[in-house]
Every structure is written in structure tokens, then in C-alpha cells.
């Protein structure tokens, strides 16, 4: 199996490899030839290293996103610094902050205005599940109800390193895509996550390892 490689972090140390591997299997279910495969690699390399994000921030997480762009964390190192204000030119929408009922159609519209391929990262508790405002009458409980989300970055707000980590996860996801043949990113258009989160059978977290750290 082709394992996406990210500088400085070994494949095994990334979280949620299972979902990624399942995705690889699904994408590779159709065979492609070698030439096209090499082209795919080139394109994915380009795409994954040139994630221009839309400057979209609604609340607290947006400030951490700004910190990410500033000198200390400097996401320009990854080539992400070309933030675009126009959704047409953006590859990525970072939903940083709470999405309310009034904002939901606006977000959807922004997403629709983006050119393919487009990716969505849900940053922080509010975007993932409504977070602190889950029980509010005016807050959307998770942006995955209206747009398909590629990576979830938990935190309230996540620290800039955590956002960078999330961006690398997204890079991994982009690197396994297929532009020619196979199922590409557009296939999942319209597939929204509306099923409730089942809390039983939750994966067990390795406490021993955590206790040591």
C-alpha cells in the first residue's frame, strides 16, 4: 500500500491511520496504469504542498489561525501562507469558529463558490460539534452537517501547532487521491455527515502511554 510521507513525522506516529488506510483501499479499488499513477503523484504533491486557505474566521480559533500566519509559527514554511480572500482562488476553507444558524447559509455558499478541488478543515470544538455552545438555540452543531469535512482539529481553541498538525493530516489525505481515474475528491460531494455520533464502542485510548508522558 502506498503510504503518504510527511517530512519530520513518521507515518506510524500519525493518528487515525485506520481511516486513512480504509480510504486508500477504497480509492485504489480500481486499477490504474503506471504512467497515470506517476502523474497522480506529481499532481498530489503539487496540491498537498500548495494549500491556499480562504481567510475565514468567525471567532476565537480565527485568532489562533492568525497566530499561525505570524512570525512564530509561520505556516509559510509549508507553503500555506497565500491566504486568499476570494473563495474562487482558495483550495481550503478552515472553518475556525462557531457557525450559527444565520451564518450557515453563508458558509455553504462560500463552500459552493470555491473551485475544485476544495477541502474543509473544521478547527476547534465549535466547528466540530458546536462545542461550548452545543445547547444553544442558534448554533449549528458541527459544520459536517452542511459541508463535507476532511479533517477535524479538536481544541478550544487548538494551539497553532495542533492546527499545523491538522494541516499535515490534510496533506496526507490529499496525497492519496487520484486525479485520473479512480474515485477522486469530488465523489464525496453531497455526502454530509448527518448521522449522530454513537458513543458506545468508542476506541480505547492508550492510557499507559499517556501516563508516562
Amino acid at each position: 500500500m502506498k503510504k503518504p510521507n510527511i517530512k519530520s513525522i513518521p507515518y506510524e506516529e500519525f493518528k487515525d491511520n485506520e481511516t486513512l488506510e480504509a480510504l486508500i483501499k477504497e480509492i485504489n479499488s480500481e486499477r490504474t496504469n503506471v504512467v497515470v499513477g506517476a502523474l497522480d503523484d506529481l499532481i498530489n504533491w503539487g496540491r498537498s504542498n500548495s494549500m491556499w486557505s480562504l481567510t475565514f474566521a468567525t471567532s476565537c480559533c480565527g485568532i489562533e489561525f492568525m497566530s499561525l500566519g505570524a512570525a512564530r509559527y509561520d505556516f509559510a514554511r509549508f507553503g500555506f501562507e497565500v491566504t486568499r480572500n476570494s473563495p474562487r482562488q482558495a483550495d481550503l476553507i478552515m472553518v475556525a469558529g462557531t457557525i450559527t444558524h444565520k451564518m450557515a447559509p453563508v458558509l455553504k455558499r462560500l463552500y459552493d463558490q470555491m473551485a475544485d478541488p476544495k477541502y474543509v478543515v473544521a478547527v476547534g470544538g465549535c466547528a466540530i460539534s458546536g462545542g461550548p455552545f452545543k445547547s444553544s438555540y442558534h448554533v449549528l452543531n458541527g459544520v459536517d452537517k452542511i459541508i463535507p469535512v476532511d479533517v477535524y482539529i479538536p481544541g478550544c481553541p487548538p494551539r497553532p501547532e495542533a492546527i499545523l498538525y491538522g494541516m499535515m493530516q490534510l496533506q496526507r489525505k490529499v496525497k492519496i487521491e487520484k486525479f485520473f481515474g479512480g474515485k477522486n475528491h469530488r465523489a464525496k460531494k453531497g455526502e454530509m455527515n448527518n448521522d449522530p455520533i454513537i458513543v458506545t464502542n468508542a476506541p480505547i485510548i492508550d492510557n499507559e502511554k499517556l501516563s508516562k508522558e
Partner: peptide, 11 residues
């Protein structure tokens, strides 16, 4: 206004 009205007072 109100694009980020989260209803904190009601909550």
C-alpha cells in the same frame, strides 16, 4: 449583526 450570535445569555 448576529452572524455569530451564540445565545450565551439564554444558555
Amino acid at each position: 449583526c448576529g452572524y455569530i450570535h451564540r445565545g450565551i445569555e439564554k444558555m
